[in-house]
Design a protein around this nucleic acid. Structure first.
Lengths: 249, 249
DNA sequence: GCATAGCGTGTCACACTGTGGCACGTGACT
DNA sequence: AGTCACGTGCCACAGTGTGACACGCTATGC
């Protein structure tokens, strides 16, 4: 079950996305593969519409718009994405902090799918497409808390990697935290994953209670005030509830 | 320059995107290929992270989150996308009609990259990722009008496919229309492409005047009032200008 | 002005890859 | 039990993609 050319083509696609507009030569250095091989790959991807030549320098390649037609199941019909946008902007306006929408991917991590920025000079930054661990982030915990027991066990049984002093690495402690998340309706991350980054998150559930995504307020440690937690938590949970409602409508 | 397996894999990816969550059997009917071939493709795409098994029915496949890492690159570094969002929502609030953001793809068509919905019961509908011809849509004309003469020639020299009574299929007539678009700052489509669908669009330009995208107000024929055109056109053009300004900032 | 080095592009024989016919296990419906 | 359709697994062979090599071009250095 190899399909070498396919896996390589997809890796090339990802490399082009990160380095666009990029030339064949630059890619040979990145991959250590023969020029002919890479060029053949680029031409093929181009013919398929997934890549295109830069309009100004036709030897440089960039991502084609075809990619946009391929959307993750979590965003199917764009309804979740569309439903989330305006509530997210309102939440940002209310708290003036960066808001993220993330979806779980194969129980291995959360992926940022949308973002609304605040206007502080100092702010947290995560690109769309970035991934983060379930057990060490607010968005991850918000989702995890509403998964079935078997799925929680699966995650807790795996290695709970530590990223710093605050990371929860003990399965029992994680279960306790998830219980608290369920009770108060929102999850909190205080320096558990990235140093200096805090977040408050709440889950977006489908009609059966399965978590589809999480909305999170993300802010620098320097602006984190424990006293405001209940208020922020309430706002985030309300936003998540509104997204859920719009999504079902 | 074939790369049969790669092209096929990408086709499969697109098919999965359209039909997710989908089974092997359904795909064999779509492609007329052996089950083994398709399954091998699915497994490979899954291992690459672009596909994943549905959580409830593990024999059904859907698009994985990996594509999100590539997606922002398709939106010109994502800054355009982010810059456009809030002006688009304001425009929607002002006119209560569906707003689209589209980018040109390889001079062959426009691709919808973002959408803000109105709240009418009757509304136009285009999914993100949908494509439409340059010569027969408002967004297409808005972009085309600001391309170089050689590029306009290229399009005009090609076949200007007709989609109905109103479609401009004559190259000379198209040039005249594009001239008018440049003069008044916005393009209008009255049933030229899809029957019953009208739109008013304006281009988003980069610092050199190259069109990067177009914003469009899209509405059903039944709500189209010629008398409101100047006002709508002005609003759309202002929105496009604001997106341009934010994008450069 | 000539040499060199780097680029993108093109070619081709060979090895190895992906192919697809076939067969198995399973679960649903008759 | 019997039938059917499904997802999955296997393997010989044909056809595919591979990558060393070569070409033309441009920029840079001597």
């Amino acid at each position: 079950m190899e399909m070498k050319s396919v896996t390589r083509s997809l890796r090339v696609l990802e490399a082009v996305a990160r380095h666009q507009p990029v030339t064949v030569g630059e890619l040979t250095k990145l991959f250590g593969l023969p020029k002919s091989t890479l060029q053949r790959t680029l031409v093929t991807l181009n013919e398929a519409g997934w890549l295109r030549a830069n309009r100004k320098d036709t030897t440089r390649w960039e991502i084609g718009a075809r990619v946009l037609a391929v959307r993750p199941a979590a965003l199917q019909g764009s309804s979740l994405f569309a439903a989330a946008r305006e509530p997210m902007i309102r939440l940002r306006d209310a708290v003036n902090e960066t808001i993220h929408l993330s979806v779980p991917d194969a129980l291995h991590g959360m992926v940022v799918v949308d973002r609304v920025d605040c206007d502080h000079a100092v702010r947290t930054f995560h690109s769309i497409g970035d991934t983060s661990p379930l057990h060490a982030t607010a968005a991850g915990n918000a989702v995890l808390a509403h998964l079935g027991k078997s799925e929680i066990d699966e995650v807790a049984a795996g290695t709970l990697e530590g990223y710093g002093e605050e990371t929860i690495t003990d399965p029992g402690q994680l279960r306790g935290e998830l219980h608290r998340v369920r009770e108060r309706g929102y999850a909190v991350n205080h320096n558990q994953y990235l140093q200096g980054v805090c977040a408050i998150a709440a889950p977006v559930l489908d009609s059966e209670g399965t978590p589809l995504a999480a909305v999170a307020v993300s802010l620098p440690d320097s602006r984190f005030e424990p006293g405001r937690l209940p208020e922020l938590g309430r706002l985030v949970a309300e936003t998540a509830a509104e997204i859920t409602a719009r999504h079902l409508a």
